[in-house]
Amino acid sequence: MISFALDDEERMIEEIARNLGKLLRDGMRKWEKDGVSSEIIKKYQETGFALIDLPEELGGVNAGFFKKVLALESMAWGCAGTTLFLELPSFNSHILVFADENAKSKYRDKMNKVGIYFDFDNNFSEENGKYTGSAKAVLGRDIALFFLVKDGKVLVFRNFEIQRKKPLALDAVGVNELKLSDSEPEDIFELKDKGRYFLSVARLYLSAIDTGILRASFEYSSAYAMEREAFGKKIAHHQGMAFLLSDFSIATSACQLYLWKAAWSLDTKQENFFQVCADAFSFISENAEKFTVWGVQILGGHGFVKDHPVEKWMREAKTISLLFGGKHISEIHSSEE
């Protein structure tokens, strides 16, 4: 019989992450405006979540991706942007797993200053070893090194123009546009697997964060529907709203199960892990985009004002669906497997 019960260690991780998520929720508007406080950074570091999924050679404990997504989902329930900010060094470090030993030793301690971009659309052109182009969505607040991934190779740049995107979503972590103009990489190293592992990890992280956003939106909007009355009864008890809330609940549970399957595929090194992670990201990001809009609509006009967090979750879900090639590149990769 298949069991979905968590073991003692997994329950402990989930409980710690939920408590941290509550703190992130309390200050999410502040982190979005002013950046993450040193107090929150310290509390996060005390949890040890950054090390859960990293291999030992990169300073981690190699405890698995399933435990990681438990933490990510509960933290993102509190604030997705802050979760990405706190997890970004760990997230970035996975780019080194299939790099050579020289690259690992050279960049292992610098991953908190790295911005990573996969050039799926050939936005960067090369002439005589120099590159020109722009990357539209690179995560990070203090980027000193730009890792441009093209054809399975990582081109490392130190000289680039950076422009912070206008605040739309994920402002706590920072979303930037990076430009190169006849820039020569200071270093180049190859990814032995052409970047498939890192892309899968990236999609898993983003799927976990999206699932946390989706759960937060469902819980908040359904609670509102159970309190608000119209035509003599709670709006949740009107048939049309009841159907909507039922679909919302089903989507939230389905996304969590797909997330767990993707984490399992990486932990157990399944042959089709690349396809499973791509499919999971496509499915979860599409549902997160759709149902966080519903979360706003359930609140009516109140959903669009910052007195309620549903508008923030809607913005974040849309932004996440565009990162690292977005769900459309994920669908292409899945179809090619």
Rank of each mutant, 00 (worst) to 15 (best):
I162Q: 02
L155E: 08
P185N: 05
I188Y: 07
V154N: 09
L191C: 05
K192M: 07
K192R: 14
K166P: 13
K166L: 15
N176L: 06
D171L: 14
K165S: 15
N159Q: 09
V156K: 04
E184Q: 11
L178N: 00
L180H: 03
R158V: 06
R158M: 10
K192Q: 13
L168K: 12
V154P: 04
E190S: 12
V156M: 02
I162T: 01
P167F: 06
K165M: 15
F157Y: 03
D171Q: 15
F160W: 01
V156A: 00
K179H: 11
K166A: 15
V154Q: 08
E184T: 09
I162N: 00
N176A: 04
K166G: 14
E190Y: 09
G174N: 03
E190D: 10
K192F: 09
R164V: 09
K192H: 11
L170Q: 06
L180S: 04
V154H: 08
P167H: 01
S181T: 13
A169V: 10
K153R: 13
V156D: 01
E184I: 04
G152V: 07
L170G: 05
L180R: 02
V175T: 01
L191A: 05
L191F: 09
F157K: 06
F160C: 02
S181G: 12
N176W: 09
F157S: 06
P167E: 02
N159A: 09
L180V: 08
E184K: 13
E190Q: 13
A172Q: 08
K192Y: 11
N176P: 00
L155G: 06
K165I: 10
D182A: 15
S181V: 13
D171R: 14
L155H: 13
L191R: 12
K192S: 14
E161K: 15
P167D: 00
L168S: 10
E186T: 04
G174R: 07
D187V: 00
N159S: 13
V156S: 01
